[in-house]
Nucleic acid binder design. Structure first.
Ligand code: MN
Ligand code: MN
Ligand code: ZN
Ligand code: ZN
Lengths: 152, 152
DNA sequence: TTATAGATGATACACTGTCTCATTATGATC
DNA sequence: GATCATAATGAGACAGTGTATCATCTATAA
């Protein structure tokens, strides 16, 4: 896929402003999780990051990884991508063209395809890949009214 | 939401033909899970069905519920709807207008909105609901090439 | 320095979804 | 209806995820 010209520091700023507006600090643990997430290729799970960060000289606990991932998610640095199995899957937004996922309900594998803005345009792409479409839905993510109110 | 004129027996036929083409039988347990799923209002989790079916005179085991739900999913009687937490959420397709879900990344609640076929049309609807959109993706589900080949 | 608030890690915990396997049901064939 | 092959079932064990707790550590401001 074609890459964006986004800068990593731009992503880092997302995190910083998120932390600031929530009274949180840019700690060393958070920084490591950020680096691991942003440095990943393709998709990753929380547990994968846990294992990865266990190998580093600077240890980060499982609790911190889970906590930090939630923050990165809300900050918009990463997004959740896979469903259907019991893992949370993520990918970073940086250096990725907007794309969608088509997921197999049997093996939970998925294929990626570029965001073409129009529903009907996607079908031929997927069918050419041998993917039998059973259905689709548009999945928006964000903050609901209740949570927004609760926060202020 | 406006209802379709779909018939329940039409949904039952979906299941029957799925079972037949997979060499499976329409057992009593499957029938009960089907009834419970089709009779549900809104969304439901696997565990909710398990509890529900425990109260009935005819018992159905947890294993059977999970197994049957996968079949109903593949048969197209139900679809998976919610993500982000560790539960599988389902809803039946019967008597439901095509719609999408917008999910809060904090509390995992979601709102539903009708399928209007066009991306940009959705945003004003969600924003009117107080939902702050952080992003979206089109989620297709189906059977991947590998799984289709493996099956034949 | 002291006080305050946030950050962390270890660990316990609840619960989901999967798997195994012995047993039972089903239904086709003779 | 007896026999046989195959599918279905239930009970329980199981691994693994994501959450919660809480005592301890750290950073920052006063
Ligand atoms: Mn992707
Ligand atoms: Mn719905
Ligand atoms: Zn597959
Ligand atoms: Zn919310």
């Amino acid at each position: 896929m074609i890459r964006h010209s986004h800068n990593i520091s731009e992503e880092h700023s997302k995190l910083e402003s998120y932390l600031q507006s929530n009274g949180l600090k840019l700690s060393f643990g958070r920084e490591l999780v950020f680096q691991a997430a942003i440095g990943s290729h393709g998709h990753f799970t929380a547990e994968e990051l846990v294992k990865l960060l266990k190998k580093q000289p600077q240890r980060v606990s499982r609790a911190t990884v889970y906590r930090s991932l939630k923050e990165l998610l809300e900050a918009g640095v990463i997004r959740e991508t896979a469903f259907g199995d019991k893992h949370h899957h993520f990918e970073h937004v940086y250096d990725e063209d907007p794309h969608h996922h088509a997921q197999c309900i049997r093996c939970h594998s998925f294929i990626e395809f570029p965001d073409l803005k129009e529903d009907t345009v996607y079908r031929p792409i997927l069918e050419k890949e041998g993917f039998k479409i059973l259905g689709h839905e548009m999945h928006f993510y964000g903050i609901c009214r209740k949570c927004r109110d609760r926060n202020s």
